[in-house]
Amino acid sequence: MTKDRASRRGSAAVAALVALLVLAGCGSGRGGDDSGAAGTAADAVAPAQEGAAAAPGEVAAPGKAQAGAGAATDTRVDQRAIIYTGSIRVKVDDVETAARDAVAAATRAGGFVGGDQRRSADADAVAELQLRVPADRFYAVVEDLAGLGRQERREIDTQDVTEETIDLDARITSQRARVESARRLLAQATSISDLVSVENELARREADLASLEAKKRRLGDLTALSTITVTLVGPDASTADEENQIGFMVGLSGGWKVFLASMTVLFTVLGAVLPWLLVFGVPLGALWWLSRRRRRSRPVEPALVAPAGTPPPPGVSAPPPVPGARSAP
């Protein structure tokens, strides 16, 4: 009898755990805060099932840790997570040589080349390089790139992601605790339905944890390695200021370019239509010419004209006399 009661109590406890897991999964779709609260409530059941009573303060530990981390944020510049991005345009005498020097500057700083696009046309050559360099060497590499020639443009942007990094760390810690709690519940499942429900909840929590860790790795990559986009142009390459000029010669040049483009389109269309004209237009034109020639070669029948003064046939009234006309003798 005592064993039956104990088994019944164990089944009831497992059923209550599964119900709490279902409620936690439903509440997680309403936002990050609700998900954390539901997960904390579900996670608090595992120690109780094992016989260890958890204090209310211990249940809210992840939330307190997150709040404490936000309050104790270090405001020193060297301890903050900052993303540096910059772009620079430099006019050089030899684009290929300058591009090799730019790559060498990034390599010496401990970085690498993330992208390389070049258009070689002698003095009108253009090379666009995307360099990834360590954050502490960002400004030094920018100055090295500016010294390759005559700097035309420089843009530097910074983004402070310290608070976002701290928030991600706290969410990852809390999510790992929820995954471990779900794994303990999975080991205690006694029925197929309970096993399936706990496995689904564990898979969802592990997917959320993997997503948070991927965001953390991406953020760490952006803060550790800064991005510099350098554009190297030849001495004859047009600049943005030259393209925005106005005047008669600029308008004439633009009109001539538009005219050439229009003629190109016209000849393209003509070339596409010409085969159809040769296949269908020539036979149709020949048929039209032959039919017209045949109509012209037919003899014209003379019209029957009654001589003057001939009376009209019976039943036909004579036309009225024309005023001023002389009658026939």
Rank of each mutant, 00 (worst) to 15 (best):
Q188S: 15
T75Y: 12
A81Y: 08
W289G: 13
S238L: 12
S87A: 10
G115T: 13
D116S: 10
A123S: 11
F112S: 02
V59C: 07
F248S: 11
G111H: 01
I172K: 01
C26S: 15
L274H: 13
A81R: 11
S238C: 05
T2L: 10
E180C: 08
R295W: 05
E242F: 13
V45A: 09
S174A: 13
L277T: 07
V141R: 00
R176H: 06
G36H: 04
G51V: 01
R217N: 13
E301W: 06
E164Y: 02
C26M: 14
P134W: 00
A177V: 11
L20G: 07
D78V: 12
R108K: 12
V126R: 09
L277I: 09
R176K: 06
L270D: 09
A72D: 12
G86K: 00
V92E: 00
S87I: 02
A237S: 09
G234C: 04
R80P: 01
E199T: 12
L17V: 03
Y84L: 12
P319S: 09
F138Q: 01
A65W: 03
A121P: 13
G254K: 13
Q175D: 02
L304K: 12
R137M: 04
R295A: 06
A13Q: 10
N200T: 14
A54H: 01
S317W: 12
D34V: 03
A214W: 06
V45R: 05
V18I: 08
L20C: 14
S120T: 13
A24G: 01
T264D: 10
T73D: 14
V141G: 00
A19N: 11
A210K: 04
R5L: 13
D144I: 06
S226L: 04
A140Y: 10
V45I: 15
V196C: 07
A99T: 06
R108Q: 14
L129Y: 01
M1G: 10
M249H: 09
T165V: 11
T158C: 04
S197Q: 03
I246N: 15
R293Y: 03
A69I: 01
A106V: 00
D241F: 08
L290K: 05
Q175T: 03
A71N: 10
P314D: 03
E96S: 14
T227D: 07
A16E: 11
S327P: 09
R137K: 08
R176V: 05
L284T: 15
K3L: 15
V250F: 01
I192S: 12
A42G: 03
A237D: 05
I88D: 00
V142C: 09
A16W: 10
S181L: 07
L274C: 11
T310R: 10
A38R: 05
A44L: 07
G114S: 05
L252K: 04
A140L: 14
D136I: 07
E50I: 12
A140S: 15
L195P: 05
S120E: 13
A189K: 02
I88W: 01
Q188M: 15
Q175W: 02
G51D: 00
P321Y: 02
A81I: 07
